[in-house]
Design a binder for these strands. Structure first.
Lengths: 192, 192
DNA sequence: AAAAACGCTTGATAAATATCAAGAGGATCA
DNA sequence: TGATCCTCTTGATATTTATCAAGCGTTTTT
């Protein structure tokens, strides 16, 4: 399972054999069955997770009991509740396996230790943060004042492989529209 | 003008006198009149800007010529087009002074140099990045599937001092609603 | 000081989306 | 295998929001 992570790291940065061994020594393999939670609301998030296979999603539940999907993570993506992790506060989010999945978990303390000891790793992490911020701004920019159809098209462009893996109602909640509206949008697009 | 930045840095991190002098030596004071652009669409963003006083906003213009405000920055906030800065690509955004403002500009090369030479500065930058990402996720979480009224209330909570400084149409475009709807929402709220 | 431009509000109407309700097809489970 | 649960779709209606249009102060310009 670590092989995949190693390949990822090899691609993104330049580490020594020693570095890899250190990272492997603190990476915990976690298998998740569909519907299983990696994090539940109210818990303090204590890890960063790297997704090796499968699909996870992060969502909150509002006053009316409605899901709000904030994020999807597939192979080679990171997932965590950074705010809870940074501040040690209870999370407002659930992180749930949408498919049977495998992730590598690195605890907060170990993650910081690695960043401290392996400068290129730290740089990589910060680069990912920047990219993530850019992507999030892009998402806001492309969906805030758009119609349901435009939002969905942008989603398809951004995550072409996700549209068929994630259930519609999750995609709908990611886009901030109802499943019914998404269904109609899909119909409209297909009949053009 | 650098005093304010110095105070900010003193608050956020721990720098030596030498560090301050290095940072000051690469900080360029820029005065902006209301409506003046700090960055225009199509230009490559070449700096990070720290706002000393005034109010700036970052926005794009869509196909139909409609503004999409992505970000406001007041005193002690940073602003730039990170994507353009990182990748050296033409920006899709305008950065404009909403009020007469003063900012400190640090060029890309100098910013990287500072990060390289002053480790605590680099750490501070990365912490800000993380916070920024958290805030952006929070924004998505609180406005994507909300009504106009909920969006505006969340805005008031997040930026209590901005609601009266920024023109309504900019706030509206930040929230992804029309100025008319914002006007009605404000009326509804005030008559309760 | 008058004219023009701008920002905001309000009203009437149109369009988009949500809500409520029902049903069809597949997967899952006993 | 049949029953149940999920997921998705579709229809009818209600609600929200956008659009179009007009008017009123304020600020800016000349």
């Amino acid at each position: 399972m670590f092989d995949q992570f190693r390949k990822y790291l090899d691609d993104k940065t330049n580490l020594s054999e020693e570095d890899f061994q250190l990272i492997e020594s603190v990476s915990i393999t976690k298998k998740l069955r569909k519907h299983q939670f990696l994090l539940a609301e109210g818990e303090v998030c204590s890890f960063n997770a790297f997704v090796c296979e499968g699909l996870l999603r992060k969502y909150s539940v509002d006053d009316k009991g409605i899901d709000r999907t904030v994020y999807f993570a597939t192979e080679n993506w990171w997932i965590a509740d950074r705010k809870s992790l940074m501040e040690g506060t209870p999370s407002k989010y659930f992180i749930e396996a949408v498919e049977n999945s495998t992730a590598l978990l690195i605890s907060k303390a170990n993650f910081e230790m690695i960043c401290e000891r392996i400068a290129p790793f730290k740089d990589m992490v910060n680069l990912i943060l920047q990219r993530s911020l850019n992507a999030t701004h892009d998402r806001i920019n492309n969906t805030f004042q758009s119609t349901a159809e435009e939002k969905y098209k942008h989603f398809l462009r951004s995550f072409p492989n996700l549209a068929n893996r994630a259930p519609r109602h999750m995609v709908a909640s990611y886009l901030g529209i109802t499943p019914e509206t998404l269904s109609r949008v899909r119909k409209d697009i297909s009949t053009k």
